[in-house]
């Protein structure tokens, strides 16, 4: 069993990890890095529970051979979300609006929310928010409170932007 060594920026900190290159990035995150917040719901890219941000794009970590992630890559997992202002705002709104029920899809869902609100000129219409979360299956909530939470967080964040401009 051959391994490779990679140095990544995970949740803002530099980590050097060694693993067999075809290990799924999900397994390296959970087992090698010990970050158990990222969940496996299907292992086939359908449920989105294993979503992380890889170089600022949301991806399903179950579909990535970890060897494909080069040195210097930036990874943000659920554990890193609270280190950002937008992440904190989203987490606050998820709790306030009752967006989490069983919670198993929530780490991946929050990553999708974060990718949306930190994207270029996010469209915060109901349809756009629903599309931004269409890669994440939730079986508990019917999505209503999740969309409500992201909408509320996006609203607050957009007002802050206006304040910055003035």
């Amino acid at each position: 069993m051959k391994t490779v060594i990679r140095t990544w920026i995970v949740n803002g900190k530099k980590y050097t990890v060694e693993f067999p290159p075809m290990r799924r990035l999900l397994d390296v995150i959970r087992e090698t890095l010990g970050l158990k917040g990222t969940k496996e719901g299907c292992g086939e890219g359908e449920c989105g529970a294993c979503s992380i941000l890889l170089n600022h794009e949301p991806v399903t970590s179950c579909l990535i051979a970890a060897g494909q992630v080069p040195d210097g890559a930036e990874i943000l997992t659920i554990e890193g979300l609270e280190l950002t202002h937008e992440g904190q705002e989203l987490q606050r709104m998820y709790v306030a609006k009752g967006a989490a029920q069983c919670g198993f899809c929530i780490p991946g869902m929050l990553v999708a929310s974060y990718a949306h609100v930190t994207g270029d000129h996010p469209d915060n219409s109901d349809a756009a928010l629903r599309e931004a979360h269409a890669g994440n299956i939730c079986r508990c909530t019917g999505y209503a409170k999740i969309i409500e939470a992201v909408s509320a967080a996006a609203e607050r964040l957009s007002h802050e932007d206006e304040d910055d401009d003035t």
Binding site: L35, L81, A100, L110
Partner: peptide, 21 residues
């Protein structure tokens, strides 16, 4: 009252420990 869930914070922070965790 529509109080926020008790396990909300651990769930949005990815800290809730499920069987595989």
């Amino acid at each position: 009252k529509g109080l926020p869930r008790r396990d909300g914070e651990e769930k949005v922070r990815g800290l809730a420990a499920y069987a595989d965790d």
